[in-house]
Each structure stands twice: as structure tokens, then as C-alpha cells.
Design a protein around this nucleic acid. Sequence first.
RNA 1: GUGGGCGUAGCUCAAUUUGGUUAGAGCACAAGAUUGUGGAUCUUGGGGUUGCGGGUUCAAUUCCCGUCGCCCACCCCA
Length: 407
Amino acid sequence: MEDILPGEIGKWQWVEEKARVHFEANGFKEIRTPILEPTELFVRSIGQTSDIVHKEMFSFKDRGERDMTMRPEMTASVARSVLEKGLLTQAKSLRLYYIGPMFRAERPQAGRKRQFHQIGAEIVNEDHASDFDAIALAHGFLKYAGLKEFTLNLNDLGDEESRARVRVALTDYFSKEKTKLCKDCQWRLDKNVLRIFDCKAHDCQPVIEKAPWEQFAPLSERFRTLAARLTEHGISYSINRRLVRGLDYYNGVVFEITAGGLGAQNAVAGGGRYDNLYQDLGGAKTPCTGFSIGFERLLTALQAQDEKIFDELKTRRVYLAPLEDNAAIATVIRDAALALRERGFRIETSPGVFSLSQHLKKADKVSARYALIAGAAELAKGVLIVKDLAKREQSEVAFDQVSAFFK
RNA sequence: GUGGGCGUAGCUCAAUUUGGUUAGAGCACAAGAUUGUGGAUCUUGGGGUUGCGGGUUCAAUUCCCGUCGCCCACCCCA
């Protein structure tokens, strides 16, 4: 697990702010839930057969001997909260988003830490028509955040009826080929036959290739409608019939967005429809869709595609440079800083009094765009010097005009 | 859970092969040259339980054993 240090927190705040603006503008409300939940919640929602549950959770007994788990994802927590607080009795449907840390006890590698962060959204109690909204929201946010190149992959897991039919046909087929499958797949055959398609083991591939794919085809009418709508809105996609996703609650349309510059872990977002989760947790039938975006992976991809993307962070940083230890000067500068703070500028300064050249050096060091300079001469004239460090220009601004100057 | 690689200053690394004086360098940091115009340069300075524990030895950063941690990949996922 990693510390996020002051030197890099600016990027985090920048992306978080963009996420809040974008999701709120699309009518989504933020929800925050506890990091700790009863283990049972994740076992019932994500599924016993998923890798997440059977080998990747941070679980322990608390002091009351209860089985607790640090959340490995957010969808189950949101569902729990919606059911527990009866949110659907106050509204017919919900559109929620979240930002926060998740925990999975995997072996770390590039793009995969044991604590990681997700930005995600859930559309609760809306039918398949909302699949488009979920995908458009995810796609739109990635663009808004500044990601230029990424690929949307889609698949259709089918409705319950067709899934049941497929499951029977596949179980029948793979049972006959059982001896050719790897150990994991033999286990999947018993527990969740669809996930055999996720297998990357070399020996399983010929068996998977010959599976009765025709049971999946053709894609449903719903899926084709969705695809047409995406095209209409200029969102390109590829269809990947092998995309299954490792959480058991998915059905219907599932999707994954991949981006370059991420190493082996190249999925930056993933999600899909889950119509049965609320029933599995003891609620009423509640059709849903949702997705989540890997925060760290998004940061990595953004920087890989445009190394200067976070430079604009500098443009809203102001360094304060009092030239003398003088209460009047300190007050004038502080008042100006207060006004700029309200305009969203970040204020930097150094404790103590320094010469002008020392101040300017320090201003460079903190990557400030502007310096506010005042000494005895300025005080006498009733002005501050506002220096643009990038353009190497400066002007004298009257005390009460500083805020207006930065408009 | 599997495989490979790596642990020496805040960071990147040297010295380890063949054990031997006080473990070095660059970057970064701090002070000064520089009392009103910045990124350079120069000078000076602070920084180390060589991951940790044990063993061998007159002597261990170096050899041996153990252990912990990190990185990359598999797997899986965001």
C-alpha cells in the first residue's frame, strides 16, 4: 500500500475535482459508505467463485468475533446502503457516484496495488435503456479528464433465459472435455462455467475455441440497440465475446475500457449490468448498471499520453513575498491572498523574511505562477507588485484591485 | 497462489567479483557569494544501524543461513 505525498496530491485533487464536476453535472449524487463491511456481504454479492472473494480479500475477525472485510469494490456496499436505508422508497431510481479506496490482497505489480482507488457510478432500478447512460458517463468522464486514446470493449452476457440455456449447453460440453482442462477450469466447471472463458492457460484454449459459441449468438436486440446508440453519439467500440468479467453479479451488457501506457494491467474502467444483486441481498427485483474507473491507472494513462497534462496546476499557484518584517505589509499581503484563495488559487509562502531574489528562488521551487511582492516602497504607494513568473512580466496593482486583476 | 529480479544517504547508483584504513558520487536539501528582481555557477554544510536477525572470521556492505520488504510478470481485476 502506498502513501500519497504532498508532491503528487495536486494531481489527485485535480482528477477528483473533475470527477465531481462531471458526475454532478450529469445528475449523479455522491455516496460514501464505510470501508469495513461484514464479509458475508461480499461473498453473497461478488460470488464465492470469483477470485476476489476466494483469494483476494482482506478479511479478519473483529473484537466481537464478527467476520469483517475491507471492501474490495463498491457496488455491494452501495446496494447494502440503499436497501438498509430504504433509499428506493423515496425515489423510483437512483443515480449515485463514489470516490474512494478499495482493498485487494493480491501480489502487487505495475498498476495493481493492495490499496487502490476507484471513481465509479451506479444506476439503481433502471432497466437496460440506462446501459447507454452508464457507458456514456464513463466515456465522457475519461475524455473530460483529458484521456485521449482508449478502447471500449463490449459484450452481451444475455438475459436470464439465454444465460440458463448457455450454461446448460456449456456445462454439457465442458464436462465431456473435463480431462483436457486445467485445475482451475475443472473447478469453474462446477462453480461457474462461464468463467472458463476467462482462462488464459494454454492447454485450455483449444477446448475453449471449440465451445458451442453459437449458443451465444446472435447478440440480443437490446445489445444491438445500445450499439447503434453509441455509434450515433460518436462513441466507438469493439465487441469482444470473450469478455466475461470476474464478478458473479453481472448479466446483460458488460464493458471494459483499456488504455495504453499502463503495462500489463491495461483496464482503466470496467462495468456492466447487474439485475439480480438486490434480490440476492434480500431486496426486491432491482435492475441496475454501473462501472468503476481505476484512479491510479487513470493518472498513469493521462501522464503517459500527455506528460504536460498537469502543468496547468501551476497556473493557479501564487507565492507571497513580503520583503520586510512589518505588520502592515503582512496584513496587505494576507488580505490579497485571502481574496485569491476565494478565486481558487493556491497560496504558497515561506516562513521568515527573505530578500527579493531569495523569494523568487523559492517561488520557482514551489512552481508558483505568480508572486505577490510588497516592501516599504509599495506600502507607501498603496500597491503590490504582481509578477508573472512564466512571462517574466510584472505590474503594480492597488491593494483593493488584486482580486480584480486575477479575473 | 506461481515464477524471475532487487534491497547501500530523501532519490538514482558505485564499492561486494577476490572480506581489510574513516562506505563514495550525482541529484535533491540547507547556508553563503547576493539588502529590491528568479531557474545558472561556485563555496560550504547536514545527512548511513549497508533492510533485519544469526553464523563463519583477527576483521563482514562483501561469504553462509534465515527472515522481512520492494519491483516486474503470471493469474486476476480498476
